[in-house]
């Protein structure tokens, strides 16, 4: 609760931070659309996924308050993301050998 009261006191600061992150998210969207028009060959999809990951990181840490949550929450989310990556790596190590 202390942490939240503290945050509430700096509410104006929070509004500014949220708006800044929102502008960042819109900019990244514009970049990803612009880059899609350029033919980058095989790295096109990688670029799109990397930009989407950065956007998700911003939403998770700032909008979803993960930064101000306790370590337990961060470990939870970290483990979830880790297993998604592991699943994808295993999936493609399987298919790339077909």
């Amino acid at each position: 609760m202390d942490k939240h009261n503290e945050l509430a006191e700096h509410s104006n600061h929070r509004y500014g931070k949220y708006i800044l992150v929102w502008l960042g998210l819109l900019t990244l969207t514009a970049i990803t659309v612009a880059v899609a028009g350029v033919n980058l060959g095989s790295i096109t999809i990688a670029t799109a996924i990397i930009i989407a990951s950065i956007k998700s990181y911003l939403v998770l840490t700032v909008f979803m308050h993960l930064k101000s949550e306790s370590k337990t929450f961060k470990i939870f989310v970290g483990v979830a993301v880790f297993f998604i990556i592991i699943s994808l790596v295993l999936l493609f190590s399987d298919y790339s050998n077909m």
Binding site: A36, I49, A52, S56, V59, F63, M64, H65
Partner: peptide, 26 residues
């Protein structure tokens, strides 16, 4: 309200990945 917000943000994150995968791969 925080929980509702978390749900809404997750829906947003899913769209963040759906968008490039379906619209920007031409």
């Amino acid at each position: 309200l925080e929980a509702a917000g978390l749900y809404w943000h997750l829906v947003d994150i899913i769209w963040i990945f759906l968008f490039p995968l379906f619209y920007l791969i031409t």
